[in-house]
Simulated assay, not measured.
Amino acid sequence: MLTKKQLDLLEFISKRVARDGVPPSFDEMKEALDLRSKSGIHRLITALEERGFIRRLAHRARAIEIVKLPDTLAAKQPGFTPKVIDGDLPDLPPPANAMAVENVHALELPLMGRIAAGVPIESINDVPPSVAVPGAMLSGNGKHYALEVKGDSMIEAGINDGDVVVIRETSSADNGDIVVAQVEGYEATLKRYKRKGESIILEAANPAYEPRILPVGAVKVQGRLVGLIRTY
């Protein structure tokens, strides 16, 4: 039996993983549950882990995998499966013309280069290799591609240096989405997106990095995060 706060936290984490492909930060959990300190979140997380609903993943910054949902939540989310998937790059390069077919679990996506989670860098290579991605990780219609993360500005969102992020191409984003943002026409970065009036705020998930506030015309959304693969 879960308390109301434990159930609320589990539901919040589940919805954010389904939406972003990564768990929320402890600060976001604290705000969502209207708690005064992160120590209360630590206690709730520990209780959920002890009851077998979540698992904290080793060597990852505040990364959480949902193992199961109680019946009351599972009924709201039919077909639930965890979205954060441990994986590895293929040993050999896949064929350049590899295509997804029905009932194939792994799809080949172009690894388009590196995306900065820190200081923006150029993100696209001319001739991308491919990376194997679980088909269940892809969400919605449209093209998808993969990028290798360089930097540590998103560690509190569970995104580490060297991770491969799966991106769905889109030119729009909602407040709170983690996006690939092209800044001033040439540099790209992976950040949490917020719009306030005629300004765009690109927020890091690391207190060492200040938010960047830019005019709307200086930022172009190129895609939204839908999944994450980690190589150990």
Rank of each mutant, 00 (worst) to 15 (best):
M1Q: 14
L2N: 03
K4I: 12
K4T: 13
Q6F: 08
Q6I: 07
I13Y: 14
I13M: 15
S14G: 01
A18N: 15
A18W: 13
G21F: 10
G21H: 11
P23K: 13
S25M: 07
F26H: 01
E28H: 00
L33P: 09
L33R: 14
L33Q: 13
D34F: 01
D34W: 00
S39R: 00
I41R: 12
I41G: 05
R43E: 02
R43A: 09
T46E: 12
L48K: 07
R51G: 03
G52Q: 06
F53I: 10
I54R: 04
I66A: 15
V67T: 07
V67F: 05
L69M: 15
D71Y: 13
K76I: 12
P78K: 10
G79C: 11
G79A: 11
P82R: 07
K83N: 11
K83L: 06
V84W: 03
L89P: 00
P93N: 10
P95S: 12
A98S: 06
M99C: 00
A100L: 09
N103V: 08
H105F: 02
L107C: 01
P110K: 03
P110V: 00
P110D: 08
G113H: 06
R114H: 07
I115N: 07
I115G: 12
G118Q: 10
V119G: 03
I121K: 05
A132Y: 00
G135S: 01
A136I: 03
G140N: 04
G142N: 11
H144N: 10
H144L: 01
H144P: 04
H144Q: 01
A146T: 13
A146Q: 09
L147W: 08
K150F: 04
G151A: 06
M154Y: 10
N160Y: 10
V164Q: 08
V165G: 12
S171E: 14
D174R: 14
N175I: 04
D177N: 06
V180Y: 03
A181T: 05
Q182G: 08
V183N: 02
E184C: 13
A188N: 14
L190V: 12
L190W: 15
K191I: 15
Y193D: 12
Y193S: 15
K194M: 05
K196M: 11
G197K: 07
E198Y: 00
I200H: 07
L202V: 05
A204I: 08
P207S: 13
A208H: 00
E210D: 08
E210W: 00
P211S: 01
I213S: 14
A218K: 06
A218P: 01
K220H: 08
K220I: 05
Q222M: 08
Q222W: 12
G223C: 02
R224Q: 14
